[in-house]
Amino acid sequence: MTLWIAVIAASLLSLATKFAGHLVPEHLLEVPWVERVVPLLTVALLSALVVTQGFLDTDGLPTLDPRAAGIGVAVVLLLLRAPFIVVVALAALTAALLRLWT
């Protein structure tokens, strides 16, 4: 039930954000420091998520496990300009194979 509420809340807030951009008068959103912080906010959140998804255990402590190997493979593939879906799939395969063999 809580999850349903969260799913609906996140969806409605996403819609509200998109509509606000189209409807709110420009001068309310065109604040220089806000315009600088928002793109950096995207970078900061995505980077924080790399840490929580890749390098933390269930207690929030740093750990290195097959996920880290998957991330390593992902970085190499990104350097080679591989498409998103290939990066994600081969990262998964790397971690799956490591777990199978160890």
Binding site: V50, R67, G70, A74, V87, V88, A91, A92, L93, R99
Partner: peptide, 13 residues
């Protein structure tokens, strides 16, 4: 299936 690694890789990408 390594889907936890896929999630981490998605954020890197």
């Amino acid at each position: 299936y390594g889907l936890d690694a896929a999630a981490a890789a998605a954020f890197v990408a």
